[in-house]
Each structure stands twice: as C-alpha cells, then as structure tokens.
C-alpha cells in the first residue's frame, strides 16, 4: 500500500496524542505502507508540528493558510478531497474533529467509511477486517471494509499503541499553494471554554460517580449521602448532566472532566469509552452494576453485581457505623 495517509491533529505547536497512534494503527493495519502525514494550520505552530511529525513520518505534507489556523472540518474536507489521490486510505482520530470531517470526506472521495475502529488485522488484498463496538461497548463486532475505492478510517483513542520509535528522518513537503482559495459555508467564530463549577473534581482523590442506573432524580440524594459518609466528592456520567440532575463540571469523560483519583466508585455506569476516557492514573476502581456483562467490569479492580438502590444505603450505613 503506497497510498496511506494520516491526518495529524495538533495545537499550540504540539502534535496531539492521536498522531502517533495513527502511525501505530497504520503499522498494524497496513504493515507495508509508509504513511504520509497531513498537517494543516498556520504559521509557527504548524511548522513546529510538522518538525515533530517528520521525526516519525517519512513524508509530511504541510498546508499553511491563515484560514486553516483553526481546524474547521468544512475547510479541511474540500482541501483533502482536492489533494488526495484516487484510492487513498485516510486515517483520522475518532475525535470530535474526525466525526465532523470523516463521513463527508468519504463521500467526496468516493471511498468507504469505517468509523471508530478499536482493533484489526493487516489488510489482505482489498479487504480490511476490523473490530468495532456497538451499544456503548456492550457488543463487539467484526466488520469488513472494501478498500478498492479507498477508505476513510477513524481510530478510537487509546485503541492502538502509539509508534513512538521516531525512526523517520522525514521530509516536509510544502503543499500550501494547494490549499489556496478555500471557503466554507460554516465559519468558525470562537471557542468557549467549559464552565467551571463550585467544585473541581479533577483535584479530588476519592470520587463517587453516578450513572444512568440511578434511575431517578430523587435517588441522587442516596449517592450524595454515600459521598458525604466517605468524605468523597460526587461526580457522574453524561446522561446525569443531560438530565440536569447534576451540573456539567461534575461530568467525567471525553466531553467532560479528566480525573486522576486514588479511588473511583462507579455506580450504575455501563463503562462507555467516552466515560472511561476521562479516568486517568489507574485508580482503585470499584464498579456496582446490576448487569454482570456491563463493560465497566472489564475496567474495574473490584466489581459488585447488585442493585445500587439497595447497596448504596447499606454501604452508607456500614461506613457510618464503622466510624
């Protein structure tokens, strides 16, 4: 395969962690390939990202235009459709940018779209066999992807080991003129940082985290009491914030906070990758879930199959008695 490309996310002159994971994925899925890195942006921060990329990729295509300073998928898509050769295989991170860019890019390239790959084996001929997850990780699936007209493949963060060998003394090819004259019907205005709350769960050592399994707003009091008895802070999964039962700054996950506690008690949380993506530092993770097959038990240190509405009050009681 001589037509494998990796789109590099970068910010502030540094490559995103996904960049070397894409390289690692390329080594697994397309072993013979020398993936070409695609880096778009503007000015010194793009130059720095390209320098860093050249240590790992044999070839880096640089697209420097002021309008590309912010990675707007509505500009990147026509750019990539313009410069990529027919049959190209494009690797993207399955990030909010990849989700924005990828599906439409596959249409514009006439290529197949294979999203959120978590595993796979070396492509055989024009077929790639990969593993995906469905139902928030409750079921895994083998899928095949026909590569004959190219493919856009997005890769889950953390699924493939980063290739950090830095074994290339790559060359940077300035393709900026190819990115001239891009105009989008969606124009970036500004970035609004997430609101800060009255609590900073990222600094807490002991967290009690509640998920959709709590069932009802009234039941939140049960986990508040448990957290109180433990001297822990209360946090949650996304559906609890969506339902407005707790505030956004308490949400753990890829679209919430990244926490690094010593102990994490997950109550009625299924263990989606978006939730687990916000838990770092390998805490002592206790999971309580009524479904013995819940994916959270794969990530937990200790598991309890139980109805949290029964177990939580009993646990609160036992802790109070033990004091």
């Amino acid at each position: 395969m001589d037509n494998v490309f990796a789109y590099l996310a970068h910010a502030g002159g540094k490559l995103d962690d996904s960049a070397l994971e894409l390289l690692g994925a390329a080594r697994t899925l397309f072993p013979g390939a020398a993936p070409v890195a695609l880096a778009a942006g503007s000015g010194a921060s793009l130059d720095a990202a390209c320098q860093e990329a050249a240590a790992s990729f044999a070839e880096v295509w640089k697209f420097d235009q002021e309008v590309l300073a912010y990675p707007n998928a509505e500009l990147l898509r026509p750019l990539l459709a313009r410069v990529l050769p027919p049959g190209a295989i494009v690797l993207l991170p399955h990030s909010t940018l990849g989700m924005d860019l990828g599906p439409g890019l596959s249409v514009k390239l006439g290529a197949a779209y294979l999203p959120d790959v978590v595993d796979g084996s070396a492509a055989a001929g024009m077929t790639l066999e990969a593993v995906r997850q469905e139902f928030s990780g409750q079921a895994s699936a083998h899928v095949t992807c026909d590569l004959s007209a190219g493919a856009v493949v997005t890769l889950r963060s953390g699924a493939f080991k980063a290739d950090a060998s830095r074994s290339a003394a790559g060359r940077i090819v300035d393709r900026s003129p190819d990115a001239a004259g891009l105009a989008a019907r969606r124009r970036f205005v500004k970035l609004v940082q997430a609101e800060a709350g009255d609590i900073d769960i990222t600094r807490e050592e002991v967290l009690v985290s509640v998920g959709r399994g709590i069932g009802d707003k009234e039941n939140i009091a049960l986990v508040e009491e448990l957290a109180g008895a433990m001297g822990a802070a209360l946090c949650c999964s996304r559906p609890i914030v969506d339902a407005k039962w707790l505030e956004k700054p308490r949400q753990v996950g890829t679209s919430g906070q990244t926490v690094k506690p010593r102990v994490y008690l997950a109550l009625g949380i299924s263990g989606s990758f978006q939730h687990l993506g916000g838990i770092k530092g390998s805490p002592f993770l206790v999971a309580v879930n009524k479904n013995p097959k819940a994916p959270i038990f794969q990530a937990a240190s200790v598991g309890v199959v139980a109805d949290l509405l029964e177990l939580v009050p009993a646990l609160t009681e036992a802790i109070r008695k033990g004091r």
Partner: peptide, 10 residues
C-alpha cells in the same frame, strides 16, 4: 468538543 468546550460557528 473535547473537555466540554464549545466551538461556535456560523
């Protein structure tokens, strides 16, 4: 987007 930040566009 990541971390709960919001990207505003027209």
């Amino acid at each position: 987007i990541e971390g709960g930040a919001q990207e505003v566009s027209e």
